[in-house]
Structure formats: structure tokens, C-alpha cells
């Protein structure tokens, strides 16, 4: 008598959901029963068809996002009590992302950007804004200093920075947000005949490295983006 293999079982076989014993039983049955083998084949083919059909879904129509993810994030960070307990739970579950996160919370943070990559520039601003909002909401003192050098300097260059408006807004909303440009990077650009104008309120340090070393000596937390 042929072993009875149900459709459910055959699907589970195709999806690799059977335990070893059941798989063996189905394999043996498939080997001796041509019709069953054909059914299994048809199911596998159907599965492949579905995968293939959505391998390249049409591109999402791009429309402006009125509420960017970081705003939802800032809100999420600020939800009191329960949310914080959740973050703490995840804190324990995940490993620390960087040694800097283990630093005591000095309330002084230096964010360092040395790269012109668009995603990083956005990240540094998201982080700055997230920190500033979280600090304001929780009533904690906080100073965030953004230090830019090399390709990162573009973020602070007037006429070049794609985020000039957002930076202006952040500065207007948060007196505790400061911008530092690397003097050496500016020097190098000028040597190459490139005119460098900085966004309003940007201060120039001798070099990004100097500034970072000084701040870390003062107990600031350092975050490289």
C-alpha cells in the first residue's frame, strides 16, 4: 500500500518544514510514486514562480516625506517611563555599539564628521537633533558640538551644504548646538584656489584633531559618525 501523503504534508516538504523522519518518509514515497513526485514538483515550481514574480517589485513612487523618520525617532526617545524601560531592555540585549556609549554621560558631546557621504551628513544631524531634543525634554544639561573636517566640511560650507536650512533651524532652536570647522581643511582648500565660506555661526578651530583632543581632555564624549 502506498503511504498517504497529504497536500499539507507535501507543502511542508517543499518548504522544508518537516522533521527528519517525516522528510525521509516523503522522500521515499516521492521516489516510488511518479504522480506524487509530479505534485511536489508543481508545488516547488509554484513557489519559484512567486519568488520570481516579486524579485523586482516596481519602484515606490517617490514623494516628499513630511515626517521624516528621525522625528518619529525623537518622539520615540522622549516617550517617558515605559519606553525608556524598553530601551533599557534592548540596551542589555544588544551589545554596545561603540566604546563611547560606555562613557559617563557628561552632557557634553562632540560629533565628528570627516566624510562628504550624504547618508553620514544626515546621520550627524539626526543624532545632533535627537540628543538636543532628548536633553531638552528630560531637562538635562547638554552641549552638542559638531566638528567637521576633510569631506565633512562641505556640510558647514555656505553655498555647498545641502542642509544649510536645517542647520540654521537647529541653531535657532538650540543655543547649546555649536559648529566647528577644521582650520587645516580650509587652508588646504584655499591653497587649491577654492573659496571657502562657512555657514553663519561656524567657528574655526586650528584643526579638527586639536579640537577633539581638547574636548576629550575636558571630559567630553566623542562620537565619530
Amino acid at each position: 500500500m502506498k503511504p498517504v501523503i497529504s497536500d499539507e504534508e507535501l507543502n511542508a516538504f517543499v518548504d522544508d518544514e518537516l522533521d527528519a523522519a517525516d522528510r525521509e518518509r516523503v522522500l521515499a514515497a516521492v521516489a516510488t510514486d511518479g504522480a506524487l513526485a509530479q505534485r511536489a514538483c508543481a508545488l516547488r515550481l509554484t513557489k519559484e514562480h512567486v519568488r520570481h514574480a516579486y524579485a523586482e517589485p516596481p519602484a515606490a513612487p517617490s514623494h516628499a516625506r513630511p515626517t521624516p523618520a528621525w522625528r518619529a525617532l525623537a518622539t520615540a526617545l522622549l516617550v517617558a517611563g515605559a519606553a525608556l524601560a524598553g530601551w533599557t531592555a534592548r540596551d542589555r540585549a544588544l551589545e554596545s555599539a561603540s566604546p563611547a556609549s560606555r562613557h559617563a554621560d557628561s552632557g557634553h558631546v562632540i560629533l565628528h564628521l570627516a566624510d562628504r557621504e550624504a547618508a553620514r551628513a544626515e546621520t550627524v544631524l539626526d543624532d545632533a537633533e535627537g540628543l538636543l531634543l532628548a536633553a531638552r525634554e528630560s531637562g538635562r544639561p547638554m552641549v552638542v558640538e559638531l566638528v567637521a573636517n576633510a569631506g565633512g566640511l562641505d556640510l558647514l560650507r555656505a553655498g555647498v551644504s545641502p542642509h544649510a536650512d536645517r542647520i540654521a533651524r537647529l541653531r535657532a532652536e538650540h543655543a547649546n548646538f555649536t559648529l566647528i570647522a577644521c582650520g587645516q581643511t580650509i587652508e588646504r582648500l584655499r591653497e587649491r584656489g577654492i573659496e571657502v565660506r562657512l555657514l553663519p555661526g561656524t567657528r574655526v578651530a586650528n584643526s579638527a584633531l586639536d579640537q577633539i583632543v581638547t574636548r576629550m581632555g575636558q571630559g567630553w564624549s566623542y562620537v565619530r559618525i
Binding site: 523618520a69 528621525w70 525617532l73 520615540a76 526617545l77 525608556l84 530601551w87 533599557t88 534592548r90 540596551d91 544588544l94 554596545s96 555599539a97 561603540s98 563611547a100 556609549s101 560606555r102 562613557h103 559617563a104 554621560d105 558631546v109 546621520t123 539626526d126 543624532d127 535627537g130 540628543l131 532628548a134 536633553a135 528630560s138 538635562r140 547638554m142 564624549s221 562620537v223
Partner: peptide, 18 residues
């Protein structure tokens, strides 16, 4: 809860979501 570590986890979280 140190604010700074919120930042790191939020970034990690954001990256996983992306």
C-alpha cells in the same frame, strides 16, 4: 539611562529598520 547610549541604540535601531 545615559542619553548617549540611547543615541547609539537608536542609530542601530534605525539602521535595522532601514
Amino acid at each position: 539611562m545615559p542619553i548617549l547610549s540611547l543615541l547609539f541604540h537608536s542609530r542601530q535601531w534605525r539602521q535595522s529598520l532601514e
